[in-house]
Amino acid sequence: MGSGSGDDGRGRLGSTLSGLAVAVGSLLFLGGFGWGALAYQPYTVPTDSMTPTVSPGDRVLAQRVDGDEVRRGDVVVFRDSSWGGGPMVKRVIGVGGDTVACCGDGGLLTLNGEAVEEPYLGGERDRSVSSTFTATVPEGHLFLLGDRRISSLDSRSRLDGPEQGSVPRSAVTGRLDAVAWPLDGGVIERPRGFAALPGGVSEIGPVRLIAGAVAAGAVFILAGAAYGPVSRRRRARAASRG
């Protein structure tokens, strides 16, 4: 009699904890997805101009940011009528007041006379950009280049215009933080070559926290849902032994 009552008490406690785990897990899981929908815009990369950082067909997460928040080194999504009006992905190399030039020693781009290391470039041909240019970025604008320099159509192809190939900050609709698909893409780190310049580099958004909340929620839900079947099997084995 006492043993059965104890088993019932443990069973009720287990059921309560199981339900609590599912509830907490659902909150984390759904809350993470909701947070992600508010903070990020999914986008499919259309061309190879940003390889190897992102490749054609990659599904990326672009944090919804104002153009004023963008820093050198960021990979941004933008729309500008002079670039065709559709969404495009490029890397910010210069901001208002900067002078961007190609090329210094070793084929490196220079920014305000200082050579910039660009570890994200894909190969030797991209690291030694053949075209020589100099551009001064107007205030409130961004100078944008692709990581695959050998084939990217970017600010270099628009240098003859009044804005020397740059786009207004207001054209930016998002900043890439991560590759969601394929799954091995991961977070897009900020290049440290720009960190010592005025304004530094931007911080990565809450993508890791969001992914952690979704993953933790899934674990809680699965653990809570598994309690019932596991508990029933244990009781059945105990009854068969008794």
Rank of each mutant, 00 (worst) to 15 (best):
S166A: 15
G57H: 11
P206R: 12
I210Q: 04
V201N: 02
S55K: 13
L183R: 10
F29Y: 12
G161A: 13
E114V: 15
V76P: 01
S3P: 00
A213Q: 01
S202R: 06
G199Y: 07
A23P: 00
L20A: 15
E203H: 10
T99C: 06
A236C: 04
T53Y: 02
R72A: 09
G212P: 01
E118Q: 12
Y40F: 14
T47M: 09
R59K: 14
F143N: 05
G19P: 03
L183K: 05
R125S: 13
Y40W: 03
V137P: 00
S5T: 15
Q164G: 07
S170N: 06
Y227D: 04
R234V: 10
R79I: 08
Q41C: 01
F33L: 15
A21D: 04
G217L: 06
S26E: 00
F220R: 07
V92C: 06
T136C: 01
N112R: 05
L38N: 11
V116T: 07
A225R: 10
L159P: 00
R59C: 01
A21L: 14
L197N: 02
G205S: 13
G86K: 08
G25C: 09
E203N: 12
D8L: 15
G113D: 02
R71D: 04
D80N: 14
R208M: 11
S3F: 09
R125T: 13
V230R: 14
I188R: 02
F33R: 12
R125G: 04
G186F: 10
G4Y: 05
S15M: 13
V75F: 05
A213M: 11
S155V: 11
R192L: 15
E69P: 02
R127M: 09
R91F: 11
C102Q: 07
L30R: 03
L108I: 01
R10G: 13
P191R: 12
D160L: 11
P52V: 05
V172L: 03
L111F: 10
V76W: 00
D8R: 13
P52R: 11
D68H: 08
T136M: 02
